[in-house]
Amino acid sequence: MSLLEIKNLHVEIEGKKIIKGLDLTINPFEVHALMGPNGSGKSTLSYTIMGHPKYKVTDGDILYNGESIINLGVDERARKGIFLGFQYPMEVSGVSVENFLRTAVEAKEQKDVPILAFHKALNKRVEAMSIPRSFLDRYLNEGFSGGEKKRNEILQMAVLLPKFAVLDEIDSGLDIDALRLVSEGINKLIREDRLSLLLITHYQRILDYIKPQFVHIMVDGKVVKSGGYELAQQLDKMGYEWVKEE
């Protein structure tokens, strides 16, 4: 059975049609890359998978483990193991990263998590990811640099251990070293925790670290071309005009 199956998806926001008949199937333990010009609807797709209430599914369906999820709440989807790494993570003032993460783990496990044990485990985790500990005491994304926000997304994913993640431009804003660290973090989750992935990106570079088995190109709300890793290389050289013309 496929892990995620998107069938003939149509999505509107405030009456505007953004996704116009999109099909995409992701099997367990696969890594897919999704590329496409600005405004083609990649983030819209990621929000829709996560269940953002503003994005209305007008036709088609999204199946996760064979079950439709389009009527599930955002938190329910998350608890089923779906994760979204945001292109623009939100800031929440006054809520420390640690506190937030504990609340999220408690929600996932549906039970109280002892503060001290969690604190220790979390400290180990950030150390392993070369993230400074001070990160944990800071308010969620407040005053974080663009790169720090992205690393925080990966930290959250590493703590929550989803089965399927959409990472929306996780590579943008990262310096060369951070890109390597983030990619290593993701690869570890793929390897050890059997994470399946939809990786949205504009750049070939991250795909050198995280090798996708499939690459899809999205234009104007539809997947217009799919292929293997070589498709990304081709895009890198030739741009999107070539796909659009085809």
Binding site: V74, R77, A78, R79, E91, V92, A104, A107
Partner: peptide, 18 residues
């Protein structure tokens, strides 16, 4: 903000409380 918090599995009520 609520969407962001809920996307980590936190219920709406708990997200508001947070």
């Amino acid at each position: 903000q609520l969407f962001y918090l809920m996307s980590r599995g936190i219920s709406r009520d708990d997200a508001v409380a947070l």
